[in-house]
Structures are given as C-alpha cells and as structure tokens.
C-alpha cells in the first residue's frame, strides 16, 4: 500500500508543480497588504523599520508562534538527545575528553577577545531593531554565536544548563507579559503601548516605538538562549559507542 500511495503522491505533486509553473503569472503580484502597511505603519506604530512593525505589531502573534516553534524544537531535541537510551555509558565517553585538548593558544585568545565584541554587536542589533534593519532574530543569533564560540574552542567544558533554561523561560514569558500588559488596560492582546515613560521619541530615534523595543529584546534573548542551548546540547551528545551503534541498527531494522 505504501508504494502505491508513494507513487500517487509523487505523481500528483509533479502534476501540481507543472500546473503551477505554467499558470503562475510572474512579476505581477497585487500588493494589497504591503502597500497598506507601508502607508499606515510609520503613523500607527512609529517605527522607522517597517519590518519591525510587521513582526511585532501587525503580526505579533505570528512572532510569538515562531518563538514557540523554536522553543518546542529545542525542547524536543534536548529531550531526545538527553534520553537514557542514547545517553547510556555516556559519562565515561564525555569524561574521557581531555580538557587540555583545546584548539591552541591563538584561537583561544582570539575567541576570548572576539566574544565581548560579538555580544556588543548582538545587543546593538537588537536594541536598534526598530530603527535600522536588524532586530531580535538576527541579534539573537549573534548572541548565541558569542556564547557558543568559547565552548567550541574548549571541547569538554561542562556548561551549566540552568542559566540558559532560566533565560529562555523568562524571555519567552517577557514577550507574553508585554502582550498581557495591554490587556490589563482593556486593550487587545499585544497592542503596542505608547506610555509616558515608554518610547515616545521622534520617529527614527532609539527611544521611540513604544513597547516594541521591549518585545524585540525579549525576542533577541529568547532566540539567543534557545540557539545556544541547542548548540550546547548537540555538542554534549556522546560519540557513538558500541552500545549506541547497536541501538542505531535496531532503529534501522524497524
């Protein structure tokens, strides 16, 4: 049954793509949403970076969903890789990595120098997300890199997961709490707040766009801690030992 279903599926897909290729009018797309947002966003949301307005204001709940997807993926990978059937006898393997076996003096020192600079760049991109191209997602990835580089040049370092867990949990809840804050004032969830002490500066200045920079900070920290956590989890996976290989065979046979 599976072969027939597969054949039907592939045939149908090929037919669909042919139809699409022949009918799709290239280069003439109606820009209803795009034009409307371009016209409204500077006045309504006060962001110089329209992408930030779309991500955080007009489609804020999509961004929340995407953050949750990242969180789910990281949690899933953590659970699967941390599972006992893969972890069995891993303590010995991991401990056997010689802590002296690092990447040499020059690389280590260079990374130590680069890391704070990367942190600064990451936070800059996050904080200026509503003004210049950039924002939480991009800045978060840079933060994760900054965090992971020292781990990369010193294999075998034990990382305490506590800080990462704390940061990813709090950053995610921060995003939601900013959204709930608006509901507290009887406004819809995730409505941007322009209060006396939040950013009310002129368009294009750092202190503008109301509560959106707060959201971007939450996004940046969330993405950064999530990716850092993922990288650390993957780097801690024990190399395949004899037992693990037999497990893998077991999977293949099924």
């Amino acid at each position: 049954m599976r072969n027939i279903a597969g054949l039907l599926f592939a045939g149908g897909l090929a037919f669909l793509l042919l139809v699409l290729a022949s009918y799709l009018p290239y280069g003439q797309t109606p820009m209803f949403l795009g034009d409307a947002i371009l016209a409204h966003a500077p006045g309504e949301v006060h962001t110089a970076n329209i992408v930030a307005a779309v991500l955080l204001a007009y489609r804020g709940i999509d961004t929340l969903g995407e953050l949750s997807i990242l969180f789910t993926a990281a949690a899933g990978v953590g659970l699967i890789l941390g599972h006992r059937s893969l972890r069995s006898d891993s303590a010995g393997v991991n401990g056997a990595v010689n802590s002296e076996q690092h990447s040499g003096f020059i690389t280590t020192r260079a990374v130590d120098l680069i890391m704070p600079l990367l942190m600064v760049v990451g936070f800059y991109i996050i904080f200026y997300g509503h003004v210049t191209p950039g924002g939480g997602f991009q800045g978060g990835v840079i933060l994760a890199t900054a965090f992971f580089l020292p781990v990369l040049v010193r294999p075998g370092t034990r990382i305490e997961h506590g800080v990462i867990t704390l940061l990813e949990g709090l950053a995610g809840s921060g995003f939601i709490l900013v959204g709930l804050w608006a509901m507290f004032y009887d406004q819809p969830f995730l409505q941007p707040i322009f209060d006396s002490f939040l950013g009310t500066g002129p368009l294009g200045s750092l202190w503008s766009a109301g509560s959106l920079p707060l959201l971007y900070l939450a996004v940046g920290l969330k993405v950064g801690s999530e990716l850092a956590g993922l990288l650390v989890t993957v780097s801690e996976v024990p190399e395949l030992s004899e037992t693990n290989i037999s497990d893998a065979d077991d999977i293949n046979r099924k």
Binding site: D62, G65, E66, T72, A75, G76, I80, H83
Partner: peptide
C-alpha cells in the same frame, strides 16, 4: 499564515511527544 504557524507548532510538538515515548520504535 497564522494558521500555518500554529499548524507547524502543533506538528513539532507532536513529533517531539512521539519521539520521547521511550521505545526505540
């Protein structure tokens, strides 16, 4: 698109839940 985002989230959550059921299968 919001439907797509939630559908994707639903998918990833269920793949993970299936995978951690403890059996190799």
């Amino acid at each position: 698109f919001n439907i797509y985002v939630f559908y994707e989230l639903l998918g990833i959550a269920s793949y993970s839940l299936v995978a951690i059921q403890g059996r190799v299968s």
